[in-house]
């Protein structure tokens, strides 16, 4: 039976730990109609810039708008693909190189829906959520991240 969904908080203060990811996978063991999960993890990359090397990204957001938009995206993707579950987590605050800042997790009876939905979610999160990353460089300069 479908349950009514309401906006959920997607934001996590600080990096997303591998324990949280492992726990999230484990939480699905009882949902035995699932046949495939798809997971995307965004990791902070040590980009080399003319002004220095990226050592961290500090994320801020327009929280009320981001949560409304994330809910709209969730509903669209649930309507488009036969998913059992969908989870989205995005970090706020300073996330160091090598740490995880985005965790998108979709589950379905069959792999294709989970994989396509996960891909679409990641693209829409990056394009449509009012979130900003400020890159902190090893020269202690900062610059605003640009999504490609």
């Amino acid at each position: 039976m479908e349950k009514a969904r309401s906006p959920k908080n997607i934001f996590v203060q600080g990096p997303i730990s591998s324990e949280k990811i492992a726990q999230s996978i484990a939480n699905h063991a009882t949902k035995t109609d699932i046949g495939g999960h798809s997971i995307f993890l965004g990791q902070i990359r040590a980009d080399e810039k003319p002004e220095g090397k990226v050592i961290a990204i500090e994320y801020t957001c327009y929280e009320e708008m981001a949560l409304e938009k994330a809910f709209e995206i969730r509903e669209d993707v649930f309507a488009k693909y036969p998913l059992t579950c969908m989870h989205i987590y995005h970090s706020l605050g300073e996330i160091k190189v090598g740490e995880i800042c985005l965790f998108v997790f979709t589950s379905s009876k069959h792999r294709k829906a989970a994989m396509q939905a996960c891909d679409e979610l990641v693209e829409r999160i990056k394009a449509e959520l009012p979130i900003w990353g400020k890159e902190i460089l090893d020269s202690s300069a900062t610059q605003w991240k640009v999504n490609t």
Partner: peptide
């Protein structure tokens, strides 16, 4: 009213 620079989440 919010002033929004290009988004760069993820």
């Amino acid at each position: 009213i919010a002033l929004l620079p290009p988004f760069s989440g993820g």
